[in-house]
């Protein structure tokens, strides 16, 4: 169960896994995620479903190795099994024909926005995708995003690929050029999504973001992923992960994301130490 059929590097410290998971693949919808565990002592953590093949019964997940859990995942090879995998979780993205949709993806969030962009295109929208990363080595899936978008705008902080600058600047340019935009959908680092919301708010452009709070359970029984949207408490794993960006309290989310920073750093230290010692 949960065998890794294919593994490939798609960017710096970023791996793509195609996993045998027929039950999840059959039900997966754009915007949904899975919870994984790697190793018996592993923690539960979420990853967005970047792609799915119902006929082949496979899921594609993309992971940036930044903490112990993602590092452990990254150490798995083709043929290995993922200890625990559950999904599809979260409320699927609401897809409808609106006209002009702009998808904004940053860093590893580009993988997450891929099925959403495709979903909006399949629903009959004209999809413009803006994808950004720090540099060429951190940019992933340019080709896949081109395949699901009517127009692709690539931007990097250092200009090594595409235009130089941030995704928010590219988005601002579209707005300033008077482009009709019915919906902006954005996934990426929380600070990026906050800024995207800031760009669209004065223009009243409906903006949906996919939030990534710390999750422990993923099925709605712990409340660890609670966020404030429009002054109300919501659980990102059940009510979300998509929410109206103009209603989200991003500062609260940014604060709650630091809750285990010390423990995370300590765990990485121990993990690297153990690896050095060949354990």
């Amino acid at each position: 169960m949960n065998k890794i059929l294919h593994k490939t590097t798609v960017a710096d410290a970023t791996s793509l896994f195609v996993v045998d998971a027929p039950e999840i693949a059959r039900k997966a919808q754009p915007g949904q995620f899975v919870i994984l565990r790697v190793a018996e002592e592993g923690e539960r953590f979420p990853l967005t479903i970047a792609d799915f093949d119902r006929d082949a019964g496979t899921l594609t997940i993309v992971s940036l190795a930044i903490g112990v859990s993602t590092m452990l995942l990254d150490s798995l090879q083709e043929g290995d099994n993922i200890t625990d995998l559950v999904g599809p979780l979260g409320t699927p993205t609401h897809l409808e024909k609106l006209g002009e949709v702009v998808c904004v993806g940053g860093g590893v969030g580009i993988a997450a926005i891929h099925p959403v962009a495709r979903g909006f295109k399949q629903a009959g929208n004209r999809v413009t995708s803006i994808i950004g990363a720090k540099s060429r080595s951190k940019l992933l899936w340019e080709d896949r995003m081109a395949a699901v978008s009517d127009e692709l705008i690539v931007t990097t902080d250092d200009g090594s690929v595409g235009r130089q600058g941030f995704v928010t600047q590219r988005l601002q340019e579209l707005i300033d050029a008077g482009r009709r935009i019915d919906l902006v959908f954005s996934v990426g680092p929380t600070i990026m999504m906050k800024m995207v919301a800031g760009v669209t708010r004065p223009h009243g452009i409906k903006t949906i973001v996919s939030l990534n709070p710390v999750m422990m359970d993923g099925t709605g029984m712990c409340g660890g992923c609670r966020v404030e949207v429009g002054g109300e408490q919501k659980f990102a794993c059940v009510d979300g992960p998509d929410f109206d960006a103009h209603q989200v309290d991003f500062d609260l989310l940014l604060s709650r994301l630091t809750a285990y920073k010390q423990e995370e750093a300590h765990a990485v230290e121990c993990h690297c130490h153990r690896r050095q010692q060949g354990k």
Binding site: A39, E41, G42, E43, R44, V68, S69, M216, D217, M221, C222, A259, Y260, E263, E264, H266, A267, C270, H271
Partner: peptide, 19 residues
């Protein structure tokens, strides 16, 4: 759940933290 199911009392050997 962190303590009982995820054995966070054994962090960092168990990878789930609890503070």
């Amino acid at each position: 759940t962190r303590s009982n199911l995820m054995k966070a009392y054994d962090f960092p050997r168990s990878h789930t933290p609890i503070r």
